[in-house]
Amino acid sequence: MRIEVDVAMEYELGAERVVFLTLEAAATTGQRIAESRLQIAGARLARIPGESGIGERVAARLPEARMRLDYHARIDVTRRERALEGLTAAPWHDLPAEAMTYLRPSRFCQSDLFETFAIRHFGRHPGGARVAAIRDWVRSELDYVPGASSAATTAIDTFTTRQGVCRDYAHMLCALCRATDIPARYVSVYAPGVEPPDFHAVAQVWLEDGWHIVDPTGMAGAESAVVIAVGRDAYDTAFMENRGAARMLSQSVSVRRG
């Protein structure tokens, strides 16, 4: 499936005029970059590999306080949706190194605190059926409420309030999967049909032969999601990082089928 992405943003920065940006579609398994163009007025750019070698961070050094950015890309998504229930899970001691990191608790996914709950509620299901049960539980138990959470909200907070946005849904799913020995990582994506249109968060779980996309909000499918970056949680995949003040003047994200 051909997906087209356009991002435009303008920010007013403080004294620190260096920002790290993670917003370009990644050249990774299941998708091919047909066209990619990132323009940041007057900036000097350097590139750094993303977490787990997926995608890149762009370090932009700006000549003035205002950052004006435009990004356009066309991506061919070649992966197919697979039924989770038919996929097997390896025991934790047989997992490859690339998956082991995503079994551990992280800042926003305190999986060690969910072990008793997760095993009691989902432990009877094998492999991918367990992930499907967790996905369905998160989707049914949480209410999608913009503004109900913040950048500091953790999976424990979301479990308590039962409200949040895509970020919180993904954290919740990752924490519960890890608590039952299924590796899960947080993934930032572009996807058509996301409301409101924005950077979107899903998860990937390690089952059988590799990573599989799971979206507990139900807004994005594996066959149309464009992976930007992966990490332990949202801390690893922020679309913009800087060490000083940053005030948003405008921002728009457009994702559509090509």
Results as ranks from 00 to 15, higher is better:
1 M>T: 01
3 I>K: 03
4 E>Y: 08
9 M>Q: 15
21 L>C: 12
22 T>F: 04
23 L>N: 05
25 A>V: 11
27 A>F: 13
30 G>D: 11
31 Q>L: 01
31 Q>D: 12
46 A>D: 09
46 A>L: 06
51 E>W: 01
53 G>V: 05
55 G>C: 10
56 E>S: 14
57 R>G: 11
60 A>E: 11
60 A>W: 04
61 R>P: 01
61 R>M: 08
66 R>P: 00
69 L>W: 02
69 L>I: 13
70 D>Q: 02
72 H>L: 02
76 D>K: 01
76 D>R: 02
79 R>L: 04
79 R>I: 08
79 R>P: 10
80 R>D: 11
81 E>I: 06
86 G>W: 06
88 T>D: 14
89 A>G: 12
91 P>Y: 03
92 W>M: 03
92 W>S: 10
94 D>A: 09
94 D>K: 15
94 D>N: 14
96 P>Y: 00
100 M>I: 07
105 P>Y: 05
105 P>D: 10
106 S>R: 03
107 R>L: 11
109 C>F: 07
114 F>T: 09
115 E>Y: 03
115 E>I: 12
116 T>P: 00
123 G>M: 11
126 P>W: 02
129 A>T: 05
129 A>F: 01
130 R>N: 05
133 A>C: 07
136 D>H: 13
137 W>P: 03
140 S>P: 00
141 E>M: 14
145 V>T: 15
152 A>Y: 02
153 T>G: 15
157 D>E: 05
159 F>E: 01
161 T>M: 03
162 R>G: 10
166 C>T: 05
172 M>H: 00
174 C>M: 08
181 D>V: 05
198 D>I: 07
201 A>M: 12
201 A>I: 13
204 Q>Y: 11
208 E>R: 08
209 D>K: 02
213 I>V: 14
215 D>G: 10
217 T>E: 02
220 A>D: 13
222 A>T: 12
223 E>K: 08
226 V>T: 03
235 Y>G: 04
240 M>G: 07
246 A>G: 09
251 Q>F: 15
252 S>V: 09
257 R>S: 06
